[in-house]
Simulated scan of single mutants.
Amino acid sequence: MADEPDEDPDLAVPIGMFKDIEDLKAKIAHLTAQVTALTGRGGGEPGEASAADGEEGEGEAGGEPEDEDEWQYPPFILLLESPLYDDELRALIEWVEGVLVPGYLAEPSADARWCHLWFEHTVAIARLHAVWLAWQELTDPVSCGYTGPSAWHRDHLDPALAQLRGSSGPFSGCTKGEHQIGHRLPSVVPSAWSHTEA
């Protein structure tokens, strides 16, 4: 027949491909173990895949979480209530004061403001928490490779610090020795939805 090939195709698989497949399997097992540890469904150490993990993946059609109402990943800090909020804020303060302030913040100035009581500014808490969550993810070479820190600086840290430390940021009323948390509270803004035609 004219549609059949003249000779059988070469189905030999390069030996290096088997190594690549085994590497991918190991990475998938590691990521599965991390997800299990983060979601609280497993009892093993991070990085250890159990036999039950493989069985669950085969048995569950969609792989959906058991309880959809429960947070599966660290939630945004402003959505937390005490005592979870207090615990998350305490951890954030440790990171900001231990990593961010000594490593990235120079002496405050008119062009680069900073408030030593930053944790009393809700906007600062929100932005710094988002930066911290990204830092936790993007500084792990297993999950993001070696370019994660560069992406963290470019996409998260630099824009957040520009917003926080700018002349119109949440620290704009704070100067050395003075702290103001109410200086940026907006007044009532007229809304098109609340106006009725006369």
Results as ranks from 00 to 15, higher is better:
23 D>W: 05
64 E>Y: 11
102 P>E: 03
173 G>T: 03
19 K>R: 09
102 P>C: 14
125 I>M: 06
17 M>F: 14
182 G>Q: 06
5 P>L: 08
81 E>C: 00
195 H>R: 14
144 C>Q: 13
144 C>R: 12
190 P>T: 14
56 E>S: 07
136 Q>S: 09
32 T>L: 10
155 D>V: 00
84 L>H: 08
162 A>D: 14
37 A>G: 01
67 D>V: 07
154 R>D: 15
185 L>Y: 01
192 A>I: 11
21 I>C: 11
169 G>P: 04
145 G>H: 10
193 W>N: 11
88 E>F: 02
195 H>L: 13
105 L>Y: 00
82 S>H: 06
181 I>H: 09
5 P>S: 06
178 E>Y: 08
185 L>P: 00
98 G>F: 11
53 D>K: 08
144 C>A: 07
45 E>N: 11
1 M>S: 14
132 W>S: 03
95 W>T: 00
45 E>Y: 12
118 W>E: 02
61 A>K: 03
151 A>L: 13
49 A>S: 15
92 L>T: 06
57 G>A: 13
31 L>E: 03
14 P>V: 11
105 L>R: 12
10 D>C: 08
96 V>N: 03
35 V>L: 10
119 F>M: 04
187 S>Q: 11
85 Y>E: 10
172 S>I: 00
20 D>P: 00
156 H>P: 00
33 A>S: 15
7 E>P: 00
30 H>C: 02
76 F>C: 06
123 V>T: 09
64 E>Q: 10
171 F>R: 00
27 K>Q: 05
197 E>R: 04
64 E>L: 15
14 P>A: 15
11 L>E: 14
38 L>T: 12
118 W>P: 04
160 A>R: 03
35 V>R: 13
174 C>V: 02
181 I>R: 13
58 E>N: 02
4 E>K: 09
11 L>V: 07
107 E>L: 01
163 Q>Y: 02
13 V>R: 08
123 V>A: 13
90 R>A: 15
8 D>E: 14
86 D>V: 04
90 R>P: 01
198 A>H: 11
6 D>C: 03
4 E>I: 06
2 A>Q: 11
31 L>H: 14
181 I>F: 05
5 P>W: 10
142 V>R: 15
156 H>Y: 15
1 M>K: 01
85 Y>F: 15
10 D>E: 05
149 P>K: 08
171 F>A: 05
99 V>F: 14
104 Y>L: 11
187 S>T: 10
179 H>A: 02
154 R>I: 06
183 H>Q: 09
79 L>S: 07
100 L>Q: 07
130 A>R: 15
133 L>R: 14
106 A>Q: 06
55 E>C: 01
82 S>V: 01
152 W>C: 01
27 K>D: 05
130 A>S: 07
